[in-house]
């Protein structure tokens, strides 16, 4: 246990609080970017816009998982067993969306 007593203990409470608030501002900023982009691109519809929004969502998710859920400070192995299996969902999404597009073509 000695050497692994969470990394966070090397940081002072003030540091952690600072980091939490920093993350809050980052998340808020990203959300504001979402909104600004939304209005800026209101009449523009393309796959790229959607991809951009999804990427912003993924970045937000990263900050929530890494800082709020403390994943950044846990062992890499824990991150591995949680995040790697989740990748299977991407396969589900990929294949089912192809199927959705195909169903559209059939109609």
């Amino acid at each position: 246990m000695e050497h692994t007593e969470h990394l966070e203990h090397t940081e002072s409470p003030a540091d952690i609080k600072k980091q939490i608030w920093r993350t809050f501002w980052i998340l808020s900023f990203l959300t504001v970017i979402d909104i600004v982009l939304y209005f800026a691109l209101l009449s523009y519809h393309s796959m790229w816009k959607n991809t951009l929004f999804i990427l912003l969502g993924v970045v937000k998710a990263f900050y929530i998982v890494a800082v709020f859920m403390h994943m950044k400070f846990e062992r890499k192995a824990l991150a591995g067993i949680i995040i790697l299996p989740f990748m299977l969902v991407l396969i589900l999404i990929w294949l089912v969306l192809i199927e959705g597009g195909y169903t559209f073509d059939l109609r």
Partner: peptide, 21 residues
């Protein structure tokens, strides 16, 4: 994810709306 995938699937089976002018 299963619910959101359903959403994606069903949305893909419908054409998108025209732009709002």
């Amino acid at each position: 994810s299963s619910l959101l995938v359903t959403y994606g699937f069903i949305r893909f089976t419908f054409p998108a709306s025209g732009a709002n002018e």
